[in-house]
Structure formats: structure tokens, C-alpha cells
């Protein structure tokens, strides 16, 4: 990959006959990608074709049995389905929550703006484990929420919130929300306020302005943010383990189990690959659908 980039750089340099730094600038990044992404992936993929034995740990082989095991086992399919469902819901919900906040941040003239941005970013500085511990204090049987519910007399027994899918969703959304907000904010900031004003001046109410102007123009941000967040959700580890409890299984904890608890590297590697590929495929599909929609709307609106 790096060589290809370097070659391309050399070739284009010669052809153009003019000095251009552009392609050469890509070389360090390409090298990094090759060293830190491609190589480990290659190793991982190779491992996934090996065979596991409890005594010999990993036996050299070229076999698809790890993949076959995954796809013929309803349990693992279920784990993947749960993962996709959690990721999709969390992405959608965080998009819904993030948009208004991002808009506010992007449009405010307040001198508190940088303080607000820091407030949004702040949770990112807290580790996932610490954060999950915080959620335990909030959602636990004698956590804040239950205290409030009991105190208000809304319930007579503590409601089980910890170790439920609900807790996982809440926890993951709290983790990914800042990413979504910041991505959307930077895109919305790039959309001139005057465009919204122009729409409003032409008779569009706030909802129409949002639907016809703001949303289509922020679609690149929606796509970028959703992609980023979806990938983060698909790979969530600490939150599902700590908030979902032992019964709740997503892909990352499952593959951790394989690597660490049973030292089954080949199957763990296969899980890792399946997680990666399904994330990639779903991201590509989602991105394509969204961009199509962006395109369609443009054509539909054409008065012909």
C-alpha cells in the first residue's frame, strides 16, 4: 500500500513535470496505516484460519472452521444481532439528541461557547470504566434514579435498571454523544446562517427550514458522525460488560472472552474479523443509503 502510494507519487511527479508535494504528503500516513493497521490485520486474519487446541493453544492450519462455527451457531449469530441492534439504536438516538445540541453550539454567540464545548468534550476525558462506575451509582438499585423514584412514591420497589439492555444503551449513548455533537457542530458551523435566513425569508417555518435546508446540508455531518458513532458502538466493550451484566453479550466482550479467558486465539481472531467486516459492510450500506437520499431529494425537488 505504501509502495503503491510512493510509486503513484513518483509517477505523477514525473508526468506533471511540476513540483507538487501533494502525493508525497500521503506517504507517511500510508506507511503508518500499513504498519499499524494492515500488518496486525493480516496477522489476525491468519490466526483466524488456525485451529485451536486447549493443550497446544494454536495449531497452524488453513481452515474455515472458526467461521463455520460462528455462522452455524445461533448463539453467536444472536450476539452479532444484539451488537448490531444496540449500535443502530444508539447511533439513531445519539443523532436525535446530538443534533439540537450541536446546532445550539454551532449557532450560539455566547461567550460561554468554549465552556460549553469543553463541557461536551469533558466526558471523553473520563475513562469508560470510571464512567460505567458512575452509571452504577446512578442506575443501581440504591442509585440516584431509584432513590428519586422511591422518594417520589412512583414505585414501591427499586426498579432494576442496572444489568439491563436499557443501561447498556444509556451508557453507550453517553459515551458516543460527544463525538456525534462535535462532528455535527463543525458541519453545521460551515452552513451559513444566512442560508437558513433566506429560507425563512422565503416563507419557510422552522420545521421546513430544518427539513429542506439544514438537514440536507448537514447530511455530510450526519453521515460522518453516524459512521464514527456506529463503529464505536459496534466495538463497545467496557460499557456492555459493566452495565449489561454477565447475561448481556456483545461482540467485543465475546471476543475478549475467546482471547483472554480461553486463550482461543483462532476463534477470537475470527470473531474480530467478523465484527470488523460486518461493521464495515453496514457502514458502507448506511452511508450509501443516506447519500442516495441526499441525491434523490435534490432531484425530486426539481420543478420540471
Amino acid at each position: 500500500m505504501a509502495r503503491a502510494a510512493a510509486l503513484a507519487a513518483a509517477r505523477s511527479g514525473r508526468r506533471a513535470g511540476a513540483f507538487s508535494l501533494g502525493p508525497a504528503l500521503a506517504v507517511p500516513a500510508a506507511l503508518l496505516v500499513a504498519a499499524f493497521l494492515a500488518a496486525p490485520l493480516a496477522v489476525l486474519f491468519r490466526y483466524s484460519l488456525n485451529r485451536y487446541s486447549p493443550r497446544e493453544f494454536m495449531i497452524d492450519a488453513v481452515t474455515a472452521e472458526n467461521y463455520i462455527r460462528f455462522f452455524t451457531d445461533a448463539y453467536f449469530i444472536g450476539v452479532l444481532a444484539t451488537t448490531v441492534q444496540v449500535a443502530a439504536v444508539c447511533t439513531a438516538v445519539s443523532l436525535l439528541f446530538a443534533f439540537p445540541l450541536a446546532y445550539l453550539l454551532a449557532r450560539t454567540d455566547s461567550r460561554w461557547k468554549s465552556a460549553l464545548v469543553i463541557a461536551v468534550v469533558f466526558p471523553l476525558m473520563v475513562g469508560n470504566v470510571v464512567r460505567a462506575a458512575g452509571w452504577m451509582a446512578v442506575l443501581g438499585n440504591d442509585g440516584i434514579v431509584n432513590h428519586a423514584l422511591l422518594g417520589l412514591g412512583l414505585v414501591t420497589q427499586p426498579v432494576r435498571l442496572m444489568y439491563t439492555p436499557f443501561a447498556v444503551h444509556v451508557g453507550i449513548i453517553a459515551v458516543v454523544l460527544p463525538y456525534m455533537i462535535l462532528t455535527l457542530q463543525s458541519v453545521i458551523e460551515g452552513i451559513g446562517r444566512d442560508v437558513e435566513e433566506a429560507a425563512s425569508n422565503l416563507g419557510a417555518g422552522p420545521i421546513t427550514v430544518f427539513r429542506r435546508v439544514l438537514l440536507p446540508l448537514s447530511l455530510p455531518g450526519v453521515i460522518a458522525g453516524s459512521t464514527l458513532v456506529f463503529i464505536l458502538c459496534m466495538n463497545a466493550y467496557a460499557t456492555p460488560v459493566l452495565l449489561g451484566g454477565p447475561q448481556f453479550k456483545m461482540m467485543a466482550p465475546a471476543l475478549y472472552d475467546q482471547f483472554v479467558r480461553t486463550t482461543n486465539w483462532p476463534f477470537g481472531a475470527a470473531l474480530a474479523f467478523i465484527l470488523m467486516v460486518s461493521t464495515l459492510v453496514l457502514t458502507v450500506i448506511g452511508t450509501t443509503v443516506l447519500s442516495r437520499r441526499m441525491h434523490h431529494r435534490r432531484l425530486e425537488a426539481a420543478p420540471r
Binding site: D194, V195, A198, V213, P216, L217, R298, A301, A302, P303
Partner: peptide, 11 residues
């Protein structure tokens, strides 16, 4: 000018 960048001139 504040034209809508995602719409054609006619739109």
C-alpha cells in the same frame, strides 16, 4: 447571496 447550495438554480 445565501443560495441553497444543495439545490439547482431552478429549485
Amino acid at each position: 447571496y445565501a443560495l441553497f447550495p444543495h439545490m439547482t438554480v431552478a429549485q
